[in-house]
Nucleic acid binder design. Structure first.
Length: 366
DNA sequence: TAATCGTGGAT
DNA sequence: TATCCAAGATT
C-alpha cells in the first residue's frame, strides 16, 4: 500500500538523524517560542503558525503571551480581548477553538496539557499536526508532526510523488516519520525537518548545495528536486459586491455590528453592510432601504467616500463605502453598539473594515 | 473529498 | 498584475 516507503530502505537512518539534528542545533533560528518548552506556549505558537509565516507570528505571539501568560489567564480571559489579540492574524476560529480547548484543559485535566495522542487530539483546534508538534516539542514523544514543510522535505528525500494536496497523502508521510524519527530527541528531529524546509529545502529553488542531508536525498540524486513535491489544486475566488456605511449618531458615535458566531470572520465587528447582487443595486436609495430594514432604524445615507477591495483566500470583496447618519434614539444590544472613535480600538475588526475606517478618517481631512 | 476559513509577502 | 504561498483544522 505504501509503496514509496520502499525508498526508506535506501536511507541510513542513523546518519540521517545525526546530520539533520546537528545542523538544526547549530543553525536554528532564535524564536520566542523556543525559549522554553512550556506546553501552553508551544501550543499557542503552533496554532498561530498554522498557514501563517514566522515573521508575521512573532509580534502576535509576544503580545499574546504578555496578555495571557498561562492557561489560567487565557481560560478566564474576556473573549473580546482574546479576539483583539488575534485581530489581523486571520483564521479567527483558531483562537476561539484555542480558548475553548484551554478551558477544557483547565476543567478536565487540572490545567495540564494532556500528553497522550488520544487526549490531546480531542481538544478543539488540535489536529494531527498540532497534536504531534506539542507531543514531540513539549513532551519529547516520538510522534510525527507533518506539516507542509515536512511533506516537501520528505517528498524530496524519499522521492515520493504523491500529490501532497490530497488529505490522504499525510498518512504516508506520518508513516515515514515514524520510521525515521530520532527516539533520542524527537523534538529536535521534528523541528529540524520543518526548519530545513523553511530555510533550505524551500518550495522554489531549494538550496541543495547548503543542505546538511543532501547525500541522503533521493530527489537530488536523481536531479528532480525542483519537480517535487507534486501539488495540485487551485480554487478560484468568487467576487462579492458589498455596500457598507459609517453611520453617525447625533452624539458623534459610530454604529458597529457583531458578526455571527460561525462562518467568515466569525464574532468580529463590522460596519453595517449589505451584499448587492448588481451594480444597479448600489444606488443610494436602495442601499438605504436595505439598511433601514436590517437595522430597524431610520438611516440617511450621504455620499460615497470610496471603495475598499479585499482579497481572501477564496473570495474577493469590493465594498462601496458610504457615510450617513441615524436619526432618533438607538437601543444598544450585544449585537449592535454605538461607539466613539476612541472606543473603536477596544473591538476587533477584520482588515477590510480597518481599511474602510482608514478611508473614513482620510475623508474627514478634506 | 472538496470547500471553507485571512492575511501579507514572495515570485 | 496575478498567482502562489505559510509550522492546518473543520465540516
Amino acid at each position: 500500500m505504501l509503496i514509496e516507503l520502499n525508498n526508506l530502505k535506501k536511507i541510513n537512518i542513523n546518519a540521517f538523524q545525526t546530520d539533520l539534528i546537528s545542523w538544526f542545533k547549530k543553525e536554528q533560528r532564535n524564536l520566542p517560542w523556543r525559549k522554553d518548552q512550556d506546553p501552553y506556549k508551544v501550543w499557542v505558537s503552533e496554532v498561530m503558525l498554522q498557514q501563517t509565516r514566522v515573521d508575521t507570528v512573532i509580534p502576535y505571539f509576544n503580545r499574546f503571551i504578555d496578555w495571557f501568560p498561562t492557561i489560567e489567564d487565557l481560560a478566564t480571559a474576556d473573549e473580546e480581548k482574546v479576539l483583539k489579540a488575534w485581530e489581523g492574524l486571520g483564521y479567527y476560529s483558531r483562537v476561539r477553538n484555542l480558548q475553548s480547548a484551554v478551558k477544557e484543559v483547565k476543567e478536565t485535566y487540572g490545567g495540564v496539557v494532556p500528553d497522550s495522542p488520544e487526549e490531546i487530539s480531542k481538544l478543539k483546534g488540535v489536529g494531527p499536526y498540532t497534536a504531534g508538534a506539542i507531543l514531540s516539542i513539549a513532551y519529547g514523544k516520538p510522534e510525527p508532526a507533518v506539516d507542509g514543510n515536512v511533506m516537501r522535505v520528505l517528498s524530496r528525500i524519499l522521492s515520493i510523488w504523491e500529490d501532497i494536496a490530497r488529505p490522504s497523502s499525510r498518512k504516508i508521510f506520518e508513516q515515514a516519520v515514524r520510521e525515521l524519527i530520532s527516539h533520542e530527541d524527537p523534538s529536535a528531529f521534528n523541528q529540524a525537518l520543518m526548519e530545513l524546509g523553511a530555510l533550505v529545502c524551500t518550495p522554489t529553488s531549494p538550496a541543495c548545495l547548503l543542505c546538511p542531508v543532501r547525500e541522503h536525498c533521493q530527489a537530488f540524486d536523481e536531479g528532480v528536486q525542483s519537480e517535487l513535491p507534486v501539488k495540485t489544486k487551485k480554487t478560484k475566488t468568487r467576487q462579492v459586491q458589498l455596500a457598507s456605511a459609517i453611520l453617525l449618531a447625533g452624539n458623534g458615535k459610530i454604529l458597529i455590528h457583531k458578526r455571527p458566531s460561525t462562518g467568515l470572520l466569525a464574532n468580529l465587528w463590522e460596519f453595517p453592510n449589505v451584499e448587492i447582487a448588481h451594480p444597479l443595486e448600489g444606488e443610494r436609495g436602495h442601499v438605504e432601504q436595505l439598511f433601514n430594514t436590517a437595522t430597524e432604524l431610520s438611516v440617511t445615507l450621504g455620499k460615497v467616500i470610496g471603495q475598499v477591495e479585499h482579497i481572501f483566500s477564496h473570495l474577493l470583496w469590493n465594498i462601496k463605502v458610504y457615510i450617513g447618519q441615524i436619526d432618533g434614539t438607538f437601543a444598544e444590544s450585544d449585537e449592535w453598539k454605538l461607539v466613539s472613535p476612541e472606543e473603536m480600538e477596544q473591538f476587533a475588526f477584520p482588515v477590510p473594515y480597518q481599511k474602510m475606517f482608514l478611508l473614513y478618517q482620510e475623508s474627514l481631512l478634506n
